[in-house]
């Protein structure tokens, strides 16, 4: 009797469970899993039409061969993306940590500063800011005007192959607000007794930072580093609007190049192959996070 009731409950829960996650499941199957499978199939096809799958022609690994051995632009885009991620993300996190430590005091005005430093982050991804950024670094723009006041030589930042990518890195670093808030929350959890004890032992500020702050915060820092590098690999809008991949493809980010191949040249097969390589790179990053995630993220609800 009891077991049949439990069985009935269990069955009912199955129905209810799938009822509640149903919308997600449906969207997952239709808009994630199915497209992923299709994309994998396209990666092995010469497919340059939108209308019908009949036009797809199986070409085996040719897309990948072309990508790795016969496409200079591909490697330029890989180089530009890595360069961007390797500089932008650590710089942003350094800035975020520095500011978080400065703001981790009980002084007046801290909440105002916190809001002001966070402001660039909420608008940083918008087209409006991208449009503005192009003018900030334009020949007659704010940045040149400012360095002219300081008596430094001006440049055409956006047209210079050595500097154009740095305007995009600057835009990324400027948006240090979210990691700053995350670090600030982390810093608040470090017991002040640790610092007091260290002071009694005669530790100076640098020593306290290296021996207390950094080790206790390192899981959060590492997690943010990896997650933000992953999203850094997918950056599209800013490069699309501000530099358009120019000059000399020095800012032709991976996602931008995929977009060009797919939606400007309509080489859907080739673009899909590129997208799958990106997926594999990201999967490697993600595995690093998850293999070590128990230490800092609490995901699954533990239930009896």
């Amino acid at each position: 009797m009891a077991s049949s009731i439990r069985k009935k409950n269990f069955k009912q829960n199955n129905w209810m469970g799938y009822f509640f996650i149903g919308p997600w499941l449906l969207a997952f199957l239709a808009f994630t899993l199915l497209p992923m499978a299709a994309s994998l199939y396209f990666a092995f096809n010469d497919y340059s039409s939108l209308d019908s799958l009949d036009k797809a022609r199986w070409i085996g690994l040719q897309n990948f061969e072309r990508m790795f051995f016969n496409d200079n632009k591909y490697w330029k885009s890989v180089g530009a993306t890595l360069y961007y991620v390797i500089f932008a993300i650590p710089l942003r996190l350094t800035m975020a940590l520095g500011l978080a430590m400065l703001l981790n005091t009980g002084r007046n005005g801290v909440s105002f500063y916190r809001a002001a430093f966070y402001a660039p982050s909420i608008v940083g991804g918008s087209i409006a800011v991208a449009v503005m950024w192009r003018q900030v670094f334009g020949t007659e723009g704010l940045f040149n005007a400012a360095i002219r006041l300081l008596g430094l030589p001006t440049r055409t930042w956006l047209g210079d192959p050595d500097y154009a990518i740095w305007t995009l890195i600057a835009l990324a670093v400027w948006q240090f607000g979210s990691p700053m808030l995350i670090f600030l929350a982390g810093l608040k959890q470090i017991p002040t007794e640790f610092y007091e004890a260290a002071s009694i032992d005669g530790a100076n500020g640098v020593r306290k930072f290296i021996s207390i702050t950094l080790p206790l915060l390192s899981p959060v820092i590492f997690f943010n580093l990896i997650m933000q590098m992953i999203s850094g690999l997918m950056v599209f809008t800013q490069a699309f609007i501000i530099t358009g991949g120019a000059p000399l493809d020095t800012t032709l980010f991976y996602a931008l190049y995929i977009y060009r191949r797919a939606f400007e040249n309509f080489q859907m097969g080739y673009a899909s192959a590129m997208a799958w390589v990106l997926l594999i790179i990201i999967a490697v990053f993600a595995t690093i996070v998850f293999k070590t995630s128990n230490q800092w993220v609490y995901y699954e609800s533990k239930e009896e």
Binding site: T32, P35, M234, Y259, A275
Partner: peptide, 14 residues
């Protein structure tokens, strides 16, 4: 963590 580029092309075709 899924890059949108992997799904957006087939989605567009669909």
């Amino acid at each position: 963590m899924l890059p949108v580029q992997v799904v957006i092309i087939p989605q567009y075709i669909m």
